[in-house]
Simulated assay, not measured.
Amino acid sequence: MAAVGDLVELIDEHYPPHLAESWDSVGLVCGDPLDTVTAVLVCVDVTDAVVDHAIAHGVELIVAHHPLLLRGVDTVGAHTPKGRIVHRLVRAGCALVTAHTNADIARPGVSDALADALGVLDTRPLQPTTAPALDKWVVFVPVGDTDAVADAMFRAGAGAIGDYSRCRWQVTGSGQFLPGDAATPHIGTRGEIETVVEDRLEMVAPRSRRDAVLAALRDAHPYEEPAFDVLVQAALAEDRGLGRVGRLAEPTTLSAFADHVASALHLAPWGVRVAGDPDAEVATVAVCGGAGDSLLDAATASGAHVFVTADLRHHPADEHLRTGGPALVDAGHWATEFPWCAQVAGVVSAWDPSLVVDVFEAPTDPFTVHAAGDGGSGE
């Protein structure tokens, strides 16, 4: 049977914790990794209503997008609102795991789910992450010692490319050197030019492992002064990151697209806000689940006709439009992240079809009332 720890590993596999922003808090919040799980509930926010539902339906694990405990937490006493939730979960034997900015950046992730819900095709990251910094090592080794040097560098952390390890390339050539008077050469004689058949050995390693790889190279290499190069590789964009941009199957107008957003998403009561020319053509769409005004410049640079996100502020939105940026559709924080819940439910169900997997569909957006007013000037 599935255990809490198994499901935490599954979530981490799809939304790797190392992708999370440094300020974020993701992973297991409460619960015993060894406890058995038969039912899972997926939600955006962990509220009292979510916990009520979990307890009533015998849920042993909640997977949430927003962290329950993030900044400045120094107590989970039951006298505090969030502490009360933790106590209720623990007493009910219900674990809680969160995937926040790691789920925003992963692919597929939060913005992929939003793009899919809106029918945005052929997406790419709006703000791609860059691959980890790597060094390219080039080492010249006497033919008989190549394997020993390579093995030592592998043990120090070199030679990994994605899911592959012990990766290396080599070619055989001729090396030349002249030992000086103070040298103690492994091969050759002081004062005489020596030519040796050597392998040119190449592999990559994380920049963070540079000192360890160098120490391993020197320790395993037979030469007193090994010949090697360390080349710093360019940082390349990855196929993941914040936001997505893609195309619609058929161009439409901003007004019609806004109606499409309103019908495609499970909205909070206040609906969507739209900024831009209602008759403007929309063919290329940028999206970012949750607060996305930090990506306004990226949306402009992407060539999108409209940017769908949430929590847009008056002045950044106004300045964005004044400088010719794409039209804006603010569909609400909860609504633009809610499609991710179905994505997670699909991941869990595919992993173990025997699990009961549910999505908490009632909006947990704190804004619950919409008063339209008479549309007057307000003056």
Rank of each mutant, 00 (worst) to 15 (best):
L214K: 15
F367A: 03
D6F: 02
D52S: 07
V196F: 09
D259W: 01
A227K: 08
P366Q: 04
A113H: 05
G109I: 04
G375E: 11
G376V: 11
F177L: 08
V261K: 03
D239Q: 14
V59I: 15
L355C: 12
H314I: 08
Y223C: 09
T300E: 06
A256H: 09
D365K: 04
A131C: 11
A227I: 04
L214P: 09
G175P: 06
E319N: 11
A92F: 05
P353M: 07
G162W: 02
P206L: 04
V44K: 01
V213W: 06
D147K: 12
G93M: 10
A113G: 09
T252Q: 02
P108L: 05
F307K: 02
A56H: 01
R107C: 10
R200W: 03
V308Q: 07
L7A: 11
F307W: 06
R209H: 14
Q127P: 00
A298R: 13
L68E: 03
A99H: 01
V329D: 07
D104P: 02
D199N: 15
E281D: 12
T253Q: 08
V344G: 06
G180W: 02
V149L: 11
H100Q: 04
V59L: 02
L41I: 04
A237F: 09
T368L: 01
P132L: 07
V232K: 01
S255H: 15
L118Q: 04
C341T: 15
W270T: 02
G5K: 06
V359I: 14
C94M: 05
V90W: 05
R91Y: 10
Q233L: 15
A304T: 10
D112T: 00
G241F: 07
K136R: 15
G162C: 07
D145N: 14
A158S: 08
L34G: 14
A117C: 03
A262I: 03
A275H: 13
L118M: 03
Q127E: 14
G175S: 11
L68Y: 02
V357H: 08
C341M: 11
R124Y: 00
L265C: 08
T189Q: 14
L19H: 02
G72S: 14
A327F: 04
V272H: 09
D104E: 10
G119A: 06
G246A: 10
A64R: 02
V138P: 03
R200L: 10
I85H: 06
L89N: 08
R124T: 12
H87E: 13
L242C: 08
D297M: 04
T123N: 01
V344A: 08
K136Q: 14
R84N: 13
P366V: 01
T300R: 14
C43G: 06
K82W: 01
L118F: 07
A362H: 14
A148K: 12
E250P: 00
V86E: 01
V356T: 15
T129M: 15
T323V: 12
E238C: 14
W340N: 05
A301C: 06
L178R: 09
G58D: 03
P125K: 04
R240P: 00
S25R: 09
L248M: 08
P353G: 10
D74P: 00
T368K: 09
S174R: 13
E238L: 15
P206K: 09
